[in-house]
Design a binder for these strands. Structure first.
Lengths: 103, 103
DNA sequence: TTAATATGCAACCATTTGGTTGCATGTCAA
DNA sequence: TTGACATGCAACCAAATGGTTGCATATTAA
């Protein structure tokens, strides 16, 4: 669990998760294309995400595919938000989004 | 949003949130009593939690009460977990907990 | 087989982070 | 008013972090 928070602490790693959320199964080079840093730096970030079990990889020949795993993120919410409180927050968030859309 | 992840990255700050989750509205000194570091260090951590809007404070005379705000944590889950997927994950998590309890 | 492509590993460096100590300020109670 | 208590602010320091460059390995395609 500790590793999950450490992994989410960095904006680059959150962007990687965003990229995978948008298109799952991307290869290292594909992910690098959207990042403004060296491939080696991205590799390090992905290693940290893997260690936190937020990303799972699958080797295909010389390529490596990366997949987002949402389970640990769900566990974060469960740590500090009671079940009923969570439903209330979701409802509030929904309302807020709907109101914003009306502008 | 950036500040939230930074705030959650540190184990001491997560413990502070746990303490507040257990008993809300605690004063600085009360929180310090459970931590193994100087008051000044705890103050810094609380400032970071406040900046992230994870903790709200209320001055009462010479004391300062601290309250947990769960809203930003809920927003984390909403970022990478689709609404339906989340219900599925909650159900899975419930099942797991129930099975663990049977041992 | 050989050249190009995809990824892996390690040493190095600037900056950030989390802790300390020391002193200042503000509020309550005698 | 004065002493005790609760908190605030700043300088300083060791360790962790995020990036780089350079080189190694493994797979595909010509």
């Amino acid at each position: 669990m500790d590793a999950v928070f450490r992994a989410l602490a960095d904006p680059t790693r959150r962007q990687l998760l965003d990229n995978l959320h948008a298109r799952n199964g991307q290869t290292l080079n594909a992910l690098c294309a959207e990042m403004d840093m060296t491939r080696q730096a991205v590799t390090k970030h992905l290693a940290i995400l893997e260690e936190a079990n937020l990303v799972t990889t699958l080797r295909k020949g010389r390529e490596k595919q990366h997949y987002l795993n949402p389970v640990p993120i769900n566990e974060i919410a469960e740590r500090w938000i009671g079940k009923f409180e969570r439903h209330r927050l979701d409802a509030l968030s929904d309302l807020k989004k709907r109101l914003e859309r009306e502008d």
